[in-house]
Amino acid sequence: MFSERDFEHYLAKKYMRTEIMPHAFCPGCGLGIIERMILMAFEELGEEEWKRTAFVSGIGCSGWVPLYFRRDAAHTLHGRALAFATALKLSKPDLNVIVVMGDGDSMGIGGNHLIHAARRNVDLTAIIATNMLYSLTGGQMSPTTPQGARTNTTPYGNIEPNFDLMKLLEAAGATYLARWTTYHFVQAKNSIKKAIKHKGFAAIEIVFQCPTYAGRYILGKPDPRDMMDWFKEVSVPLGKAKTMSPEELQGKIVVGEFLHRTDRPEYTEQVYKIIEKAQKKGGR
């Protein structure tokens, strides 16, 4: 009944701009899996939620993720997605605004907007796709490149320590935090679902395989299947990580739900309260 020639998966038919697919990602790139996590979250949340969702992304391979969704999407500038998203959320408070950024996009060039969006606790869902380097520009060091790793701008090995996004954002004031890898398919999808429902700044870091650069340069594993095995091997659930020493945690990826708090006021609501207050006073 279906021809294999131009077949698309159910989720693609339902949610994606199939006329511009296949997408531009390399074979085996984990960004496609992140797309699927998002779509499966919406499959469970229902069509109403999907209809009131908008996407914003930055520049990088990861910035292309939402461009394939049949939904309003802004492909902004490198690092600036959260500024656009904050204003969009304020202007249309009923929208679910989902922001997809790379590690360099969010923690490198966009670091300022990242901490301030978390500080304000704006009701956004930030999906941060970490591949441990800059990939769209061809494999340079990023704020998450492991120390010692060789990239195109660290030919003698990376001397810079990493950001721990979870700690950074907790200190900044985010109210929902989780980290998974593309191997943790179901968990990540559930976290995305929770984050969309959460009122406040939610960030989910998803470590994904970039076989083309991270695979070849950092891990010596150009095959996406080997990278998936590696994710399985090095990821440590949060509970277990708490019992481990810093030395033992070297080179591991701690995964789990890091934070879920509801005690901080959400920014959009506060802004609308100010408007109400100003209008009651009637000007003077």
Partner: peptide, 18 residues
């Protein structure tokens, strides 16, 4: 905003927010 890079993007975002 936290800087002018953010200000101009926020203005664009709000414009698309109608």
């Amino acid at each position: 905003m936290e800087d002018e890079l953010g200000s101009i993007l926020a203005v664009i975002g709000a414009s698309w927010g109608g």
